[in-house]
Computed example of a mutant assay.
Amino acid sequence: MPQEVRAVVARERNAPVEVETIIVPDPGPGEAVVQVLACGVCHTDLHYRQGGINDEFPFLLGHEAAGLVESVGPDVTDLKPGDYVVIAWRAPCGGCRSCRRGRPWYCFDSRNAAQPMTLLDGTPLSPALGIGAFAEKTLVHSGQCVKVDPAARPEAAGLIGCGVMAGFGAAVNTGAVGMGDTVAVIGCGGVGNAAIAGASVAGARLIAAVDIDGAKLDAATRFGATHTINSRDADPVAAVRELTGGNGADVVIEAVGIAETYRQAFYMRDHAGTVVQVGVPTPELKIELPLIDLFSRGGALKSSWYGDCLPSRDFPLLVDLYLSGKLDLDGFVTETIGLDEVEDAFERMHSGKVLRSVVVF
């Protein structure tokens, strides 16, 4: 029967979030109820709260989560109660034109639960990225539940569900960083540091971290940065070129999402190098570049959506890297908090004081 659980709800644009009782229905066909063990506080949740994604309030926030499958719908055969999972916001449909062409990481019809979770008065909730995991339990499509090794603690494993996967995949999947490459990463928050970690795992010989915050640059070295550049004190384009013999980096990952840092990334890359944009811009931002520079420099300008990942393939891999000591997921967890501390965590995140606050149930 439907369950009443505590959850974090954003009722209106820019209003403080509230912890409320919501109703989670029994899973229907293709659905699963997950008992949430931990969920990271991601900047995307703040975007929802601010109305920067859309205006489909009220939102049920939270999407970087690990938990235990509690129950599944009648036709679900690949999950069972007790399975330890990381929840993905991409669940390839298998039938769209991208999936049919063997590119499920670009799925155009990603699956979500068909039934809504609701407030006590029956008002439907819009779950953040189709998940809504700032809740004791949440309803998702069974395809969003990716089974991983239960030895990984949920505070760390849940972060793979969004920020870590986005950054790591931007380097490894989208940027195709390889052995001996030179890499620059602009913006050393959670996503940028995950890109640094991905580049390190992939074998980059030089990884330059660029930020305006000295504390973030110090943290970047923990994840594999070989050099740090404070762009308050130095021209980052010139600094990266100096580190690379005047050439520029093979791959530059822009993890901020503003015009100026994208422009820096464009001119920071080597001739025929690659720029990967993984920082999420707001809709009003625009950029102008000389068309001759776009033509003459060659290479590739790419956008990375969720690190171009395939969750069923990549989530277990990242957990294995974590358990083997090759990916420092614990380093992303700045603090653990309770469900009623999410609003304060938004403030700390906005001020750049944390990589990730993680709600633990």
Rank of each mutant, 00 (worst) to 15 (best):
M165D: 03
G190H: 02
A215L: 13
V177Q: 04
G169H: 03
M179P: 06
E254T: 03
A219P: 02
V183D: 05
G187V: 14
V164M: 10
A202G: 08
A176H: 12
A202Q: 03
G189A: 09
F223L: 03
R263Y: 14
R205I: 09
T226I: 15
V183G: 04
A176F: 12
V251Y: 01
R222E: 10
A259D: 08
T182A: 07
T226G: 14
A202W: 02
A208E: 12
T228C: 15
I212D: 07
F223E: 06
M179N: 12
Q264F: 04
H227M: 10
E260G: 13
V210L: 09
A194L: 08
T174P: 07
E260I: 14
T174R: 07
T261P: 00
A220S: 09
V237L: 08
A171S: 05
G161A: 00
R263M: 11
N173M: 00
T182N: 07
D218C: 15
R205E: 14
Q264G: 04
D233N: 14
K216W: 09
G167K: 01
I196Q: 12
L206F: 07
G257I: 08
A171M: 05
E254S: 04
I186R: 12
M165V: 09
A176Y: 11
I212M: 03
A249G: 05
G214S: 13
G203V: 06
A195F: 04
R232A: 14
L243Y: 09
T226V: 15
R222Q: 09
I186C: 06
I196Y: 12
V191I: 07
I160Y: 04
T226W: 14
K216T: 10
M179K: 13
C188K: 11
V201G: 15
A259M: 07
V251K: 09
V256D: 09
A234I: 09
V201K: 14
R222N: 08
